[in-house]
Write a protein that binds this DNA or RNA. Sequence first.
DNA 1: TTCTCGTTAGTCAAACTTGACTACCCGACC
DNA 2: GGTCGGGTAGTCAAGTTTGACTAACGAGAA
Lengths: 213, 213
Amino acid sequence: MSAIRLLVLGSVRQHGRAHGYQVRNDLEYWGAHEWSTAKPGSIYHALKQMAKQGLLHAHEIAPSTAGGPPRTEYEMTEQGTEEYFRLVRESLTAYDQKMDVKSAALGLIVDLPRAEAVSLLKERVRRIEEWRSAVTDHYVPEEGPEQLGHIGEIMNLWVHTADAEAEWTQGLIARIEGGAYTFSGEGEPFVGVLADDQENPYATGERHPGDDR
Amino acid sequence: MSAIRLLVLGSVRQHGRAHGYQVRNDLEYWGAHEWSTAKPGSIYHALKQMAKQGLLHAHEIAPSTAGGPPRTEYEMTEQGTEEYFRLVRESLTAYDQKMDVKSAALGLIVDLPRAEAVSLLKERVRRIEEWRSAVTDHYVPEEGPEQLGHIGEIMNLWVHTADAEAEWTQGLIARIEGGAYTFSGEGEPFVGVLADDQENPYATGERHPGDDR
DNA sequence: TTCTCGTTAGTCAAACTTGACTACCCGACC
DNA sequence: GGTCGGGTAGTCAAGTTTGACTAACGAGAA
């Protein structure tokens, strides 16, 4: 599953009520167009789809004074909030080496209480290690690893990547346990969206690092 | 871009001529259903699309004696071969942190001459380092990194991942330069596809490590 | 004999993604 | 006073992916 729903729900939730263009701007502000499928088409599609499924409630709104077509504003439903937290938790614990899901989950992690964030990350590390030993056990043929030829390098890369990520996650856990960042229920949350009147420093259309796709 | 075309072209090329089910089996043998979008629908779609675009040539064939519907066999065209090598080269050098493309490229790297493989991998390392410095330069705000809050961890993860991959790639380069594996033009190639009569040890439907998606 | 199961080979609708496009308004420039 | 660029808000067709489904045949069980 892609990170698009997670990102869109996260944005709508922080606004309370938002229209597509606002969400689109948030995601651009977060840099999400560079590491996920967050293009206009996907965002509007996700909004409509989730409205159809009852995760969001849609309101038709007259065109803004700034010009442009009439907008649709979306609000979280109870069901949407539940789904949002389910997705955040799942994305934090599931090891599936997809950059977009990882990055999105990391950006939204502070919507959880600190203790839960830590325990989910520990679960993630546990699963990475489980995955690692399953792979090394399963894909080493009885005739010895030479049988795999250069194909063995694929597994080698996976394992190396998994190790690097586990190590990094341990570091993150330590930082969070050490009191870094502001989590849910700990006072003024980190401002992760643009206010209505705030300009977006990244909405320039200019090339950014990571624009390699 | 996904890895599906690369994988399908790689499989057809090694067979000389192949029908969809054969390709599907190869990809399963390679484990590709676990780290890429290689499901039946995608495979057959890619074959048809590439036939339409002139990368493959399609032959209608009577049903096999083993039962089932009539098959279509595909053969590489000149254009398809060109596109295949373009894709392999591009996938080896472009740093876009997509597991599927990386794994596919690694599996097909021996279709290139050894010297070229090495120089493409060196180019890859160069690009990773370029990307790294672009990211660290660009995303550290003037007011100091604290301004980013927990969002900075996303960048932190990227950089850590990039470093791990660069290091691993250096290791691979060393192994290849040290004479490991058999590359194009070096005699009997590594057998990377299933012969017609060979059973597929992985086509069991059984759960494998990495089935986390 | 008939039934069911597994293998062979592929199709299809629904969902999602891509990239380009529309239409409106405002302010600046010439 | 016209028009040109840029911001606002979104649509659309074409391409891709997903997951479930079909249909034919052979082998072995009941």
